[in-house]
Design a binder for these strands. Sequence first.
DNA 1: CGTCTATTTGAATGTACTCAAAAGCGGTGG
DNA 2: CCACCGCTTTTGAGTACATTCAAATAGACG
Lengths: 206, 206
Amino acid sequence: MYTRREITHQRMKALLKKHIQNRVAISNSEADKFCDLFAQRTVKKKSFLLRKDEICRFEGFVTKGLFRIYHLDHNGFEQILYFAMEDWWLTDIDSFNNQTPSQLFIEALEDSEVLLISKEDKEYAYENIAGIEKLFRTMTQKTHTVLQRRMIDSMSKSAYERYIDFIQTNPGIAQRLTNLQVAAYLGISHEFLSKIRRKIQQQGQT
Amino acid sequence: MYTRREITHQRMKALLKKHIQNRVAISNSEADKFCDLFAQRTVKKKSFLLRKDEICRFEGFVTKGLFRIYHLDHNGFEQILYFAMEDWWLTDIDSFNNQTPSQLFIEALEDSEVLLISKEDKEYAYENIAGIEKLFRTMTQKTHTVLQRRMIDSMSKSAYERYIDFIQTNPGIAQRLTNLQVAAYLGISHEFLSKIRRKIQQQGQT
DNA sequence: CGTCTATTTGAATGTACTCAAAAGCGGTGG
DNA sequence: CCACCGCTTTTGAGTACATTCAAATAGACG
């Protein structure tokens, strides 16, 4: 007999296992061993997985919902680094690796579910589960590429172009966001985003 | 008896070995095994290690000189992603990993020397030399953190602030660059950089 | 229904770019 | 050794992109 919570937990781990096996050659039993290191956590909309000055003690895999990972600049403006939805990883990589106070906030934008692994268990996995070190090396390389691309775009493209790119490349995420969030991600004011959207509307009508 | 070239080669590998042993626990013999996978290459000022549309067949460790890694945007403007000087790594991580055509140029800004490793040899090292997978995982995580920080700054700070940050954080590199290069790194026009520098001069005099 | 938040709009402002031209500077050949 | 060439740096005027502030409007939710 399983409780409902346990059933959910099983289903979430199945998602994680599938995610891993799509990305690296790993046996069933090794994958299970890895997945068992994760704890489940539900996060209500508008509550935080991490706040500035806390030490990030987890790396997370999102199985339901949507998060924003953001930074407050010296004027108190929110700068969104990235969003994490189902099938995405999330952490403050700097704070997690060095166990130093974080500069970031991780907040749920919807009622969400995540699987969390601690630093100790992740280190254990690196040492004792074949393929895990490779999994994270390749994942980090991939996100590095994406970040590099975004860096180039943020410097060489106009706000208008970046907005078009964003909604075309991430329609699944964009739908679920307010313009406030989108503006904070693009690094522009929400008023200006509104004006960009108006211009697009007008073009559509001709 | 060694030729002069061989002696230089030995000295370069010693630099690489030291670099590695500062970053990961690795035995002398394993480190040597890894270093032996690298080939030496001298690159004259203004010549290229990689051009757009070529496949990046190497990852490099700079032992002498200075490189710029840049991208041409759709208006033909150069956007410098990063500089690599002595003790730094350099590659197009995307093109190298996937063996796909590169979007980037890698150009020597001074007469330079690099040690290069091929994709095959690097894969060999991942599989057969203990500690190498960890070395590159941690290095990639570190550069990811740096890139993330730069991303935040490029969106939340003014050109003036970014320039001050750059010359204070990287005095060693900044000295060796023309303002044209610095501007292309900061993502601003060189004319505007000149105006920023004038303002700083005037402040200094009071 | 009322409250809170998101979105839109406009006017004034600021930051950074473009274009054109002049000045500085280093190297090279006559 | 000097004159010239190419490249970097500076300067100014005009312009474009994006922000700020204030206020009105629209939506969402209890």
